[in-house]
Design a protein around this nucleic acid. Structure first.
Lengths: 361, 361
DNA sequence: CTGTTAGCGCTTTCAA
DNA sequence: TTGAAAGCGCTAACAG
């Protein structure tokens, strides 16, 4: 009764904005903190008198109460947060994955946070900081470009991790697109148009997706009984400069291709630039098709034909599987997206080969 | 002595990967937890016997100890995390900001997490979840496109927030680029080339940056004694479609401009596409310059002249100021980046006006 | 239906 | 130089 005990600020520290506490709400509503906790989490299993609930809700609202998730995490041992590590957020391809992952995470009650890191070493420290530090319950790893470069830490059973859009040796499960099939669809379309001298502008040799897209190219060529000519497979970085240079090399070949399948949408921008610089007409002289689709494709000159892949769905599936993993359900070690299927979007950059123009219908 | 007390799992919950605890390290090193804490945070103020320190370090390493940041946050009341809310990570413009913000945050000992949200309502709930929930110490808000749309919550003194690249009425401080100056530089360049009939492809009327870029356009025109013709200011969304449609409208004018200053790099892609579709040569018939620079600009057809802005530096400054704010230092209510200065990067999309070709020099 | 009792893992006075 | 004790804000048994 005589204990006036004003609210004390125990540790000084900078004045961060802080919501009132659960205890304060309890006091004001004249109930026990545990009751407030039950009501506010609206645990449906728990029965509380409507009148009490109403009072608590009213007080909480009046006091502008927001639960301290840090405190909650400490006791529940879960943060209800998923982490996504990406090499670069600015890639139109990743954006679709991000949106899908975000969507599915939210649907499962999780928040998604992104961390950029090109550096594979950073992935390992992010794992320690985020997962072991308790800030996220699981990690989607879309970074670490090369096939075998994930550090030991991750290869030796880092829990609650999922490799996204990449297949890596080791115990961590992966979820990937059917890159082989996607690329094969694109090449088949080129073949269907009448092309025989088809080149592949493949990505870096040590990148898993690049390898699988190249495999799809080769499969489709072989299936049609077409041979891949010398110099028709060019390795290039997945960026504009890589596409530009590789295309220049292709054009300088004694007998250049009549069509090129490009492993990356960004690189394809460089390919078009190279053709323009070399005074080569697309698709008159050479057809171009790119892996992955995005809005920008239809605004390039000429509008770029693309291979649409289920990127949004990949992101969704990744979040769903990670949540399963976190909840102790078992998930496949390697999941390959099969649905919806890749499909070719024909725009202005593909046409019948130059040799055939005017000769066939 | 008889107490064998095996490690118990108090609450069941899914088996999240958990590092060993500080208490475990203390036990193994036969010291008090507080001593371990002191050593591991390597507080330089605190003096501990080298021998003890070494032992603790060794044990911690052996046990693979990673501090639980959640627990630490609960007591220190800081998460050492900064949040960045962006409308879309896929924009090349934001990428530069993100990198800068990340860089400065890390330098100050903070981790940066991104959250995508176009929806302005989501900004408000993110504030509650992240800042009030204690998950981040401060928030950089680059979202909320329209000038006045930030919800009440934010306008009435949300602490530890900084509006990034946007000026919004209300108590929250902002940090912006000198958009007026940047756009003016671009227009001056066009004027210098001899253009008089210059149009501005401005962004949406309710977006602050768009308004300021348009202001810069008008200033530069007025300063040169040039009038802005009817229909020469087009409003368009900051995307490819917006640029495309607006350029088409400009081209259908009775007397079309000889040069266009475009408020957005993404929209400029649409502008080039429109010119191509309309059979209009760039820069022969019309010159195009775009606000903001990125790698892709030099690979468009034709290579796009741009106005380079200090985006990386903007991100850096934003993080720095937010950290200051968090630490109780005062920061300017409105900070306008002045350094480094905007500069025009001339590429192939700008040239002397068609009327002057062959007539001057 | 609600209160009591213990902590989650860490930091931080205050003593020794 | 180190230990003891208290507690951050919340949840989750277990009683009542």
């Amino acid at each position: 009764m005589s204990d006036v005990a004003a609210v004390k600020t125990p540790h000084v520290g900078p004045a961060n904005p802080r919501s009132s506490t659960l205890a304060a709400v309890a006091r004001a509503a004249a109930v026990d903190p545990s009751t407030v906790s039950r009501v506010l989490r609206s645990d449906p299993m728990v029965r509380v008198r409507p009148e009490t609930r109403a009072r608590i809700l009213a007080v909480a609202d009046e006091l502008g109460y927001t639960p301290n998730l840090i405190a909650r995490s400490l006791v529940t041992r879960k943060s209800m947060t998923l982490g996504l590590i990406i090499p670069s957020a600015a890639n139109v391809v990743y954006e679709q994955i991000i949106r899908g992952a975000e969507h599915a995470a939210r649907k499962a009650g999780y928040v998604l946070v992104l961390t950029e890191s090109t550096d594979v070493g950073a992935v390992s420290s992010a794992y320690k900081e985020l997962v072991l530090g308790g800030r996220v319950d699981g990690l989607l790893i879309a970074s670490g470009t090369s096939r075998d470069s994930l550090p030991e830490l991750l290869r030796e059973g880092a829990g609650n991790c999922l490799i996204l859009n990449r297949r890596i040796r080791g115990p961590i499960p992966s979820i990937i697109e059917d890159d082989e099939r996607g690329m094969a669809r694109g090449v088949e379309k080129l073949i269907e148009l009448g092309h025989k001298r088809i080149a592949c502008l493949a990505g870096p040799a040590d990148v898993d997706t690049a390898a699988r897209r190249l495999a799809g190219f080769k499969e489709a060529m072989a299936a049609a009984g077409l041979s891949v000519r010398r110099g028709y497979v060019q390795r290039a970085a997945f960026d504009e400069a890589g596409g530009y240079e590789s295309m220049m090399r292709l054009l300088s070949l004694p007998s250049p291709p009549t069509a090129v399948a490009v492993s990356s949408l960004v690189a394809a921008t460089g390919v078009l630039a190279a053709c323009h610089a070399a005074g080569v007409d697309v698709p008159g002289y050479v057809s171009v098709i790119a892996f992955h689709d995005a809005t920008v494709a239809q605004y390039l000159t000429p509008a770029l034909s693309t291979i649409w892949m289920p990127l949004f769905e990949l992101g969704e599936a990744a979040s769903r599987q990670l949540v399963d993993l976190i909840n102790g359900r078992s998930i496949p070690q390697l999941f390959r997206m099969q649905d919806p299927e890749p499909r070719v979007i024909e725009r202005a950059s593909t046409a019948r080969p130059r040799g055939l123009i005017g000769r066939i219908t």
